[in-house]
Simulated scan of single mutants.
Amino acid sequence: MATKRKVNNLLALAVLSVIVQRPMHRYEIAATLRAHGKDRDMDIKWGSLYTVVQNMEKAGFLEVIGSERDGARPERVIYRITDAGRVEMADWTRELLAAPEPEHHRFTAGLSILAVLPPDEVIELLGMRIETLTQVIATTRAELDQVKGTLARLFVVESEYGLAMLEAEANWARSLRDELAAGTFEGLESWRQWHVDGMPPEQIPELGERSDD
């Protein structure tokens, strides 16, 4: 079970991961997060950065060490990580690496109600998804190869994982598409006939019931 944290927002962990390098103000934190591509690794909502930083200060993970002013711009408060922040960062990272949690995926949601569409349309839609994934995989692999030339592997393992997940999804979707196209998917003809006959939506749950005949 995930630990109930004082600031339970992955943006907080992202902030800790960059501010541990040196004290920063919020604008520098945001710029560094973008430069490190953290918005690709985590669901970062930039509009909540101010609130997250404030909450982290209240929780004792960050502390104010001063401020600076650049011309007519508003004064910028400078923060640094505390010892408690370092402990929180390490503990949170351990949890993320060791303890798998269910994560909601849009594709999973679509698959869960697959029956509402006729199989031939599903075949077409899966083909579109596979084509898009193939393009994304090629782009991601090229970007990863380029980055590997400038960064140690330690700092790109999350990109390797992302690429592996994309490839696994594409392979699985391709397998399902091919099974449907070949007519070997269990119950395919009944599924197709249900749509030909215009099955009422309220009968859709019955599709999941196996027949002993």
Rank of each mutant, 00 (worst) to 15 (best):
K4S: 08
R5P: 02
R5E: 04
V7C: 03
L10R: 03
L10C: 00
L11A: 04
A12F: 05
A12M: 08
A12W: 04
A14T: 07
V15M: 03
V15D: 05
V15C: 03
L16G: 00
L16N: 04
S17I: 03
V20D: 14
Q21Y: 00
M24W: 02
H25L: 04
R26C: 09
R26I: 12
Y27T: 13
Y27F: 12
E28N: 02
I29N: 09
A30C: 00
A30Q: 00
T32Y: 07
T32C: 00
L33Y: 05
R34D: 09
A35W: 08
H36I: 05
H36D: 06
H36Q: 00
H36L: 05
D39P: 10
D39L: 01
D39F: 01
I44V: 01
I44G: 08
G47Y: 02
S48R: 12
T51L: 02
N55Y: 03
M56K: 01
E57C: 11
K58S: 09
G60H: 07
F61N: 11
L62E: 06
L62S: 06
D70T: 11
G71C: 07
A72P: 08
R73K: 13
R76I: 12
Y79C: 09
T82N: 13
D83Y: 10
E88N: 03
E88D: 08
M89A: 13
M89P: 10
A90G: 05
T93G: 11
R94K: 14
E95A: 02
E95S: 09
L97D: 07
A98C: 07
A98T: 14
A99S: 07
A99L: 09
E101Y: 02
P102F: 10
P102H: 03
R106P: 07
R106Y: 15
F107E: 05
A109H: 00
A109E: 08
G110S: 05
I113F: 03
I113G: 00
I113R: 00
L114V: 10
A115Y: 05
P118Y: 00
P118M: 01
P118A: 01
P119Y: 09
V122L: 13
E124D: 04
E124N: 01
E131Y: 02
T132I: 13
T140L: 07
L144F: 14
D145V: 00
D145F: 07
Q146D: 15
Q146T: 15
Q146R: 15
K148P: 06
K148M: 12
K148T: 13
T150K: 14
T150E: 15
A152V: 12
R153D: 14
R153W: 03
F155V: 00
E160W: 04
G162F: 01
L163G: 06
A164Q: 11
N171F: 13
N171G: 12
N171W: 12
N171D: 15
W172N: 11
A173H: 13
R174M: 12
S175E: 14
L176I: 14
L176H: 01
L180M: 10
L180E: 04
L180D: 07
A181Y: 04
A182I: 06
G183L: 08
F185D: 05
F185H: 13
E186H: 13
E186N: 10
E189T: 10
E189F: 02
R192C: 05
W194V: 11
W194P: 02
V196K: 14
D197Y: 08
I204M: 10
L207Q: 08
G208S: 11
G208V: 06
R210Q: 15
S211F: 04
D212F: 07
D213S: 13
D213G: 15
